[in-house]
Design a protein around this nucleic acid. Sequence first.
DNA 1: GAGGCGTGGGT
DNA 2: TACCCAAGCCT
Length: 324
Amino acid sequence: MRSVHRKIRHWYTRHGRTDLPWRNTADPYTIWLSEVMLQQTQVKTVLERYYFPFLEKFPSIEALGKAPLDAVLKQWEGLGYYTRAKNLHKTAQLLTQEQAPGTAPVLPSAIDALIQLPGIGKNTAHAVAAFAFRQPVPVMEANVRRILCRIYAMEQADEKMLWKIAYEMVDREHPFEYNQAMMDIGATLCTPKTPQCTACPFESICQGKHDPQRYPTKKRRAVPTREQHIMLNLYDNKLALTKREGKFLHGLWGFPATEVPLCAAEYIGEVTHAYTHFKLTCKVYLYDALEKTEDHYFTPQQIRRLAISKVDEKILNLYLDSMK
DNA sequence: GAGGCGTGGGT
DNA sequence: TACCCAAGCCT
């Protein structure tokens, strides 16, 4: 394993994404933030659109913990999986409340303590421990999972087995470089579609290299289609929006929707949006209200300052186009 | 443990 | 185009 560790470190020095900003900081807060933003999200998106603006607005745990959730969601707008922002904020609040007087709030360094915080699961706890606190532990995310499945020719990813292997394989002397290298190898060489096995430092020991597509086997689910009817409630050139409750798009503002069409309204078009688990078609109608029937009305300019989801942005744009 | 949870990149 | 997939977590 020592020679493999050497190969991996050598590969990382030459080909790794060593310039990523969260790899060149000692601040656990910014490393934690990057880990949460990167959950189910590509590096490019986080790097180019969200990481720096978020830190500009909330430069510390304390700044984040003392900010209103609405402001945090506005910074998160468009990134998706909004529970991440809610949990990030919640954890910052907890840490800020727990801090001793006169001291800055800090993240715990122990995996057991990290994993109890909202929004920090097993992988993120390990990532923060390895990257922020240089502990000799492995990470286990999509890239590492795919690499290990291929090295051991496992069609099914057995989480317990994978963690055991990962703990045995981690370079305990250079956990930071090892883990970053594993993710880079997965992202740039051991890719899902067309892996470049000949350039891979694991090539000599990989049992799955002759049929990499087979490891791991992918599971796919059917994607149902749902239809909603959006009644744009217009009063005094303002539109009614409500703050979404429940788990879907929680905390964001949005146009009220119904499952069934309502009568006596002008149809102005439809909007579609693809989510992970369903496709949504929204039939949009305009209703000129004679009196206020909803709690909150906003001008289009005011709506731009609220945190709204992508589908509501599409609906707003449809409305503005229909006014031309 | 299986399904809910967003959006955009890549092919 | 219509997929697949991405530094997962929570229930």
